[in-house]
Design a protein around this nucleic acid. Sequence first.
DNA 1: CCTTGAAACGGATGGATCATCCACTTGAAG
DNA 2: CTTCAAGTGGATGATCCATCCGTTTCAAGG
Lengths: 177, 177
Amino acid sequence: MPALRADAARSRARILEAARALPPDGIRHNDLARDTGLGVGTVYRHFPTVTSLLEALHRDALGELVAVARDAASSPSPGKAFTDLVKTGAELQLSRDGLQAVLVAKDVSPEVRALREELLDLSAVALDAAVRDGQVRPDVSIEQVQRLVCGVEHAVRLGDGHDRDLLLGVMIAGLRP
Amino acid sequence: MPALRADAARSRARILEAARALPPDGIRHNDLARDTGLGVGTVYRHFPTVTSLLEALHRDALGELVAVARDAASSPSPGKAFTDLVKTGAELQLSRDGLQAVLVAKDVSPEVRALREELLDLSAVALDAAVRDGQVRPDVSIEQVQRLVCGVEHAVRLGDGHDRDLLLGVMIAGLRP
DNA sequence: CCTTGAAACGGATGGATCATCCACTTGAAG
DNA sequence: CTTCAAGTGGATGATCCATCCGTTTCAAGG
């Protein structure tokens, strides 16, 4: 794809900025148009779907997570590395409202799909190492852990967010053999 | 409130029946009107909001849960009674799509609000007994357990539902001291 | 500079969905 | 059989969505 024209790049940035100020389940193309002073058509041109906008907002977080997973996959202390990975994932999801949708959505760009696959592969290696080290029960898959993290995020969000560490701690304790 | 007229009772029943065939997040008054052959106005008259309809659909499940909690609150084996209560709650929520909304929604009828309060009070007694018996860690509140159950439900629903017991097992294991 | 064509923009507009309102019908009490 | 409160239906205006295309802007080549 050819580079964006100057005005287009400016519009794109303005839309993303306005979107950051909105709750992710309250994103309306029309509102973004009003907030940015752009036309609705322009907003749709840049982000045809809400999902595509969420992807753009959180691709960086996804990259971060992949990096952490890569480190965890080859850590000398697999147990701690894995629980740290889980914690990082949960904290990132909680600080980035809308990230869970990107991690879980079905209609997602090939680029994000590839990143997610890489994340899962690396995390699977880290999980495997932790299991072999006797730090994690052997009967859970990496997909299941990922879904549990989403579940904890959900539980924390139902409250005021103050018990993030406690709830996450319960789940991590439950993962021990 | 005076007793329903015969035709009204019939309409109400038809609406509830049709609603049961729909995913709870896909309930539209207009669809229910089409499916039942009633007018839209009639559907709105019986259930002004989607929440009111969900309440009607799941009030019985809420009652069931209160009964189980009442037993658990005075059980001779508090540890098992409490984990059984948690399991029952989770299974009920998973078998009744939409029940979580009733347990958690903010704009809820006084009747349901009272039931929820009763459920929490009884569960708190059961939790307390389990803690004193050394079966459950003492640093979690009953509200937190309830939210964790909602989280597990979320995690199970993200998958195909086959690992319900495993994921629930992880959480329950995490609740031990 | 100009020219030119592709890229980007804007917003009017048709389509969909929502929920209200009120004229009409039905049930049941006396 | 009357009466009227309760119940019903669906036309309708309000709101929200997303497309389409005429206009404007950018930047590459002359």
